[in-house]
Every structure is written in C-alpha cells, then in structure tokens.
C-alpha cells in the first residue's frame, strides 16, 4: 500500500444551480449522476458530489482556478482535503475494516462512495487498471493526521 496526505493537491470545488452549465461551457465532460465520477484525457478527475456540486482534481483544477470569476448561482467550495492513494494486496482487508459499504472494485465502478470510514466522513473512488485497483480516498484535511495514523496502524 502507498498512502499520501496531500493537502496541497490542486482541487477545485464548485457548487450552485449554475455549476454544471459553467463546467460544460469550459469544455468539461460531467458525470451524469450524482455520486459518480470520470477521468478526463489529461488524467484529471471530475467528481459529481450532488446534483449541483462538483470536485475537480488534477490539471483541470489549476486551469479553472486561473479563469474563475464567479457568477450568479455559482459558488466556489474551498477544499482542504487529505487525500490517500491506496493500492496493494492489503487494501481490501483495510477497507473492510474501516467502512461498512461494499468496496470491491466491481461493486463501486464509476461511483463516488460518500460514507463514514474509521468514524469520519470520507469520499472513495476506485480506479481499475492493469496494475490492479487503486483507491483514492478524501477526508477533511483536519482529520488527515488521524486517518493517516489509523490506516497505518491497521496495516501494521
């Protein structure tokens, strides 16, 4: 397993009735359903967290940051996430212990799981590829130290 706490990962949070249209105008494909996600050609992640709330991470976040001017029914959601990348053979057992939902890759294809893990609110997605599943887990950055220690303790 590898894990990283990365408060500074460029993340662009957006909320409001006009959010989806504004993102589409910027040429960004959007997941159709709430709590789903997709990958952009530049490997940026687009997570739809609700009907009118989005989180974008990766190069696209930097681009949007540079052109952001705000607008009616269009609100920034400042992000301070701790993000963890989980991969390796111990990860299924780790996830089985910290959360109650079914986190098998086939059970959560394309989904953003918003749930409690180890007692705190987190978001989880699973990317599948030739190297095996890679899970990305976000939590409020103020819980970052706690969750990092917690994951490590379980793995140890």
């Amino acid at each position: 397993m590898s894990a990283s706490v990365a408060y500074q990962l460029p993340g662009f949070g957006l909320k409001g009735q006009a959010a989806a249209n504004w993102l589409l105008e910027q040429g960004i494909d959007l997941p159709q359903q709430p709590n789903t996600w997709l990958t952009m050609p530049d490997q940026s992640l687009v997570l739809r967290l609700g009907r009118s709330e989005f989180l974008l991470q990766g190069p696209v976040a930097t681009r949007l940051e540079s052109i952001w001017q705000g607008g009616r029914e269009l609100y920034r959601v400042p992000r301070y996430d701790a993000t963890f990348e989980l991969k390796g053979e111990k990860v299924p057992a780790l996830l089985q212990e910290i959360c109650t939902l079914d986190t098998r890759p086939e059970a959560m294809a394309g989904q953003v799981l918003m749930m409690l893990a180890a007692g705190i609110s987190v978001m989880l997605i699973c990317e599948t590829g030739n190297a095996g599943p890679i899970y990305r887990l976000w939590c409020d950055g103020t819980y970052g130290d706690y969750l990092g220690d917690c994951l490590q303790q379980i793995l140890d």
């Binding site: 301070y80 212990e97 910290i98 180890a118 007692g119 705190i120 409020d140 950055g141 103020t142 819980y143 970052g144 130290d145 706690y146 917690c150 379980i154």
Partner: peptide
C-alpha cells in the same frame, strides 16, 4: 478497534 477520530487545525 474503537476508532476515536481526532482533528487538528492547520
């Protein structure tokens, strides 16, 4: 394992 979440400010 008894999870006891702890928060730290920046």
């Amino acid at each position: 394992r008894s999870f006891h979440p702890v928060r730290h400010t920046p």
